[in-house]
Amino acid sequence: MSDERKLAIICSKGSLDMAYPGLILANAARMMGIEADIFFTFWGMDIITKDKVDHLKVVPVGNPAMHMPQFIGGLPGMTDMATSMMKKEIEKLDVPPVGEFLQMVHDAGCGLYACKMASEMMHLKREDLVDEVDAILGAMEFLEKAEGAQLLFI
């Protein structure tokens, strides 16, 4: 595999179904020897926030892939049901829960960075974020880090 190839992923969404694609791609990149970094910003901050990481949800409302009338998706308990169904299916595939996944990609050498502006906006300090986060960076600092990388916005 080419030594120069590099992947930079921006995770901007904090739902369970938006957390996995970035983590899976970053991990796949590392498994094949490609450098990988993830930058978490806006709602993506939930993925690396200590008291949120284990409580990410799949929200049926506004999601046409759920193939159900919108009003049903909005009924009480539907979000929890969709969430627990997805967690079960993910577990069957031997894919770890998000918290453990962060640790795995980090051990695999993937850099994990929190957005400085989003941290300030959400009043999150370093100690509010999971231990695996390497640093809180400004957008320009992350772009410097991502120089020459293939960039993916999720």
């Binding site: 595999m1 590392r30 498994m31 020897g33 795995m104 051990d107 695999a108 050498g109």
Partner: peptide, 14 residues
């Protein structure tokens, strides 16, 4: 994981 990447650097799976 960490040791796997040290033992088989740049693409442990392969």
């Amino acid at each position: 994981t960490k040791e796997l990447y040290e033992l088989f650097p740049k693409g442990p799976a392969k």
